[in-house]
């Protein structure tokens, strides 16, 4: 590995969504950055910023979750009007809308090939086949509200977490859902990029960790407070966890993963609010309550590099790397959206 220096230029403010940035996502082709505000409207910023900003009405009284279709032209959203809406960008037309099934929609996600759309609404989970225009199966019931869901990085597996553990299955194949059981309540769930692991952040200030093949699980405790975010490094070796002012990074390599290991502890300037690993690079970006954004070089041996401090814009609540890892998009509590231009220059 060669040493590299990152060169973040001056942050560019690309706009405001007016209220807390609830979700922030680059389109897969890097042409658009979508930012959903907690009060409803979704702003789509073209990149580079040569065309006008597109504002989609979103959901009243609030948008909860968005996701881009792999074609980078369709954006799906779910919100507190109990609807799932499909938008066309840049035309900003609504292509479709479906009743979500319950008031509380936590998460909406396309699978990797963009044929299927999954969303959770209260205690049910729905999977829609977009090409055929129908639901894949009847809605899946869960013992409690589905806290998080995501498709496996490859293939057609879907995972959903709720009180009682994580369920994994291939929708539409008629088989029973496999349960990775744990009597706990999670609020975040993340597949590792190689799909070997699933990690959840639990309400009792622990991180739960499963080997997806064997179902063996580990529990990581000792966090100073609620786990605010989880992020996997692109090689699936490191899992970063944020709690209080401490960034803890767990080495998950080897046959036993993080078992028996202590994490690398990296103190920051304030409470950590957000984590984002770059897509292909081993760089970790962290956001803080005081508006700071730090960048941690590979290996995590040195201190984090301060990329920017947006002290007037409130806490950092969203971070998303552009598909080419050249830009880091930042969303704040006050609704500001910034771009950090991160060009890598090898020495």
């Amino acid at each position: 590995m060669s040493a590299s220096r990152l060169n973040p230029g001056v942050p560019i403010r690309i706009g405001s969504v007016g209220d807390y940035v609830q979700d922030l996502r680059w389109s897969p082709d890097g042409r658009f950055l979508a930012a959903a505000s907690i009060s409803g409207p979704i702003s789509v910023f073209p990149h580079p910023a040569e065309e006008p900003i597109i504002v989609l009405p979103g959901h009243a009284p609030g948008t909860q979750t968005i996701d881009w279709h792999p074609d980078s032209r369709r954006l799906v959203s779910g919100g507190q009007d109990a609807r799932i809406r499909l938008w066309q960008v840049p035309e900003s037309t609504q292509l479709d809308a479906w009743p979500a099934g319950a008031d509380w929609i936590e998460r909406v996600a396309w699978n990797r090939d963009g044929e299927r759309l999954a969303w959770s609404a209260g205690r049910t989970l729905h999977v829609r086949d977009i090409a055929r225009g129908c639901y894949v199966e009847t809605p899946y019931d869960f013992p409690s509200t589905v806290a998080d869901l995501d498709w496996a990085p490859r293939g057609r597996r879907l995972a959903a977490s709720a009180y009682g553990g994580v369920w994994i299955w291939r929708p539409g194949e008629g088989k029973e859902r496999r349960l990775l059981g744990w009597k706990g309540s999670s609020h975040l769930m993340r597949w590792s990029p190689d799909a070997r692991f699933i990690a959840t952040a639990d309400q009792d200030m622990t991180v739960h960790f499963w080997f997806t093949d064997s179902g063996v699980d580990l529990r990581m405790s000792g966090f100073p407070g609620k786990i605010r975010d989880l992020a996997w490094e692109s090689s699936s070796r490191y899992l970063a966890t944020a709690s209080g002012e401490m960034l803890a990074v767990w080495d998950c390599s080897g046959p036993t993963g993080p078992e028996g290991r202590t994490p690398i502890m990296l103190p920051g300037p304030a409470a950590v609010t957000r984590l984002a690993y770059a897509h292909a690079q081993p760089h970790l970006a962290t956001g803080y309550k005081d508006g700071s954004v730090l960048l941690w070089p590979p290996g995590l041996h040195s201190v984090g590099q301060r990329l920017a401090t947006f002290s007037d814009a409130g806490a950092i609540v969203q971070l998303d790397w552009s598909p080419d890892d050249h830009h880091l998009a930042v969303g704040t509590e006050q609704g500001e959206v910034f771009l950090l231009n991160i060009k890598e220059s090898r020495r």
Partner: peptide
């Protein structure tokens, strides 16, 4: 309540 109140408290 954790989910709902968490969401409400995000609003400006």
């Amino acid at each position: 309540l954790i989910r709902i109140l968490g969401n409400l408290m995000k609003r400006r």
